[in-house]
Computed example of a mutant assay.
Amino acid sequence: MPDAHRLNLSAGLASVTVAALLVGLKIWALGETQALSVAASLADSTLDLMMSLGGLAAILYAARPPDEDHTFGHSSAEDLAALGQAVFILASAGVIGVAALLRLTAADPIPLTAEGRGIAAMSLAIALTLGLVLWQRRVAARTGNRVVRADSLHYLGDLLPNIGAILALWASDQFGLARLDSAIALATAAMLAVGALGIGRGAWDALMDRAADPQVIVRIERLAENQPGVLGFHDLKTRRAGARLFVNLHIELDGRQSLNDAHAIGAALKHAILAEFPGTDIIIHFDPARRPDTPG
Rank of each mutant, 00 (worst) to 15 (best):
P2M: 12
A4R: 09
A11R: 05
A11L: 06
S15C: 07
V16H: 00
A19Q: 05
V23T: 13
L25A: 07
M50R: 01
P66K: 09
F72Q: 03
H74C: 02
S76E: 11
D79Q: 08
Q85Y: 04
S92F: 06
I96P: 02
G97L: 13
G97Q: 05
A100N: 01
R103E: 06
A106V: 04
I110H: 14
P111E: 07
T113S: 03
G116L: 10
G116Q: 11
M122P: 00
M122L: 15
L124D: 01
A127Y: 11
G131Q: 14
G131A: 13
Q136Y: 06
R137W: 09
R142A: 15
R142G: 02
G144F: 14
D151R: 06
S152R: 09
N162E: 05
N162M: 12
I163R: 03
L167T: 01
L169H: 02
W170R: 11
A171M: 15
A171K: 08
L177H: 13
A178R: 14
I184L: 15
T188H: 10
L197K: 13
G198T: 06
W204V: 02
L207H: 04
D213R: 11
Q215T: 13
R219I: 02
R222N: 07
G229A: 08
T238S: 12
R239E: 10
R240Q: 10
A241N: 03
G242H: 09
A243D: 15
H250T: 03
E252H: 07
L269F: 09
H271Q: 15
I273F: 10
A275V: 00
F277Y: 13
P278T: 04
I283T: 13
P288V: 10
P288I: 13
P292D: 12
